[in-house]
């Protein structure tokens, strides 16, 4: 199989790599770049664990190929904040106990980042509908909704 040279900006850093076409963005981030914050659950778009931003929009990293992203800007959970300086959404998750094992958390954070930009999220129903594509196996949904509501109020 042929390989392709790509140039992708991830969290502000430019990476030039040569990839096989079938390499999923999720595996490119985790295995090629070592950015293991993006998690992989189902590999068919259902669980939301792999959600990242591409050119500002949330996407499933398991449903995109790295080779498609030549010239694109990707943001992952590693780009949101640092352990010492969490961003306001991460701070809201911490404050409201919105994570237990943490497996779904990167996808929840990236999804909520895009939801907060695009929707009023005026009601809890709207927040729940927005988060409905992200599964939390620890089932801590109440706390996640509380955190997103707090982030909305602080927006």
């Amino acid at each position: 199989m042929s390989t392709h040279a790509i140039r992708v900006t991830v969290n502000g850093t430019v990476y030039e790599r040569t990839v096989e076409p079938r390499l999923l963005l999720a595996d490119f981030l985790r295995n090629t770049l070592g950015l293991t914050g993006t998690h992989v659950g189902c590999e068919h778009g259902v669980c939301g664990a792999c959600t990242v931003l591409v050119d500002g929009d949330s996407v499933r990293a398991c449903l995109l190929f790295a080779v498609q992203l030549d010239g694109s800007k990707v943001e992952t959970v590693e780009g949101l904040g640092t352990p010492a300086r969490l961003n306001p959404l991460q701070e809201a998750f911490r404050e409201h106990h919105a994570l237990q094992c943490g497996f779904c958390t990167p996808g929840m954070l990236m999804t909520a980042t895009d939801l907060l930009r695009k929707y009023p999220l005026a009601s809890d129903d709207e927040i729940r509908a927005g988060l409905s594509g992200n599964l939390c196996r620890c089932t801590g949904y109440e706390h996640i909704v509380n955190a997103v509501r707090a982030a909305r109020d602080a927006r």
Binding site: G45, G48, T51, D57, S58, V59, R60, L63, L64, T111, D114, L115, K118, G130, S132, G133, N134
Partner: peptide, 8 residues
């Protein structure tokens, strides 16, 4: 679907 899928 969901926003991340509607974006693509």
């Amino acid at each position: 679907a969901h926003l991340a899928i509607r974006n693509r």
